[in-house]
Computed example of a mutant assay.
Amino acid sequence: MVDDHFLLVCDDVPDDVVLTDPAIRVLYVARAVRRLTGLSLWRSKVLATQVPAAILVGVPQEGAEAAVTALREA
Rank of each mutant, 00 (worst) to 15 (best):
P22Y: 04
H5W: 15
D15G: 13
D11Q: 13
V9F: 04
V46C: 05
V18T: 02
L39E: 05
L41Q: 09
G63E: 12
L56F: 06
Q50I: 10
Y28S: 15
G58Q: 10
W42R: 15
L19V: 03
T20G: 12
A54M: 11
V17H: 04
G63N: 03
V18C: 02
S44V: 06
V2P: 14
F6S: 15
C10Y: 11
V9L: 04
V68L: 03
R31A: 13
Q50R: 14
L7W: 08
T20H: 12
A66V: 03
F6Y: 10
L7F: 08
Q50G: 15
D15E: 14
V51W: 00
V13C: 09
Q50V: 12
T49I: 03
G38T: 09
V17I: 08
A70C: 11
R25N: 14
V17D: 06
A70V: 05
S44P: 07
L7K: 07
V33E: 04
Q61G: 14
V68S: 00
V18F: 11
T37Y: 03
D16L: 01
L56N: 11
V59G: 04
F6R: 14
D11K: 15
V33W: 02
R25A: 14
R25C: 07
D12P: 13
L19S: 04
V59K: 00
T69M: 11
D15V: 07
L71C: 04
A70S: 11
Q50K: 13
D4M: 14
L27K: 06
T69P: 05
L36V: 03
L36E: 12
A66G: 01
Y28R: 10
T69Y: 04
T69K: 07
V29L: 07
C10I: 15
I55S: 02
R43Q: 09
R72M: 05
A70M: 05
I24E: 15
P52N: 02
C10V: 15
A64K: 05
R35M: 13
V46L: 11
L47N: 01
V68I: 08
Y28L: 15
L71A: 07
D3Q: 11
A30P: 00
V17N: 00
G58W: 05
R43L: 08
T20W: 02
L41I: 12
A53Y: 00
S40M: 05
Y28K: 13
D11C: 12
T37C: 03
E65N: 11
R35W: 00
D11T: 14
V59A: 01
E73I: 11
G58P: 08
V29R: 03
T37R: 00
R34Y: 00
R31K: 13
R31C: 06
D12V: 10
L56E: 02
K45Y: 08
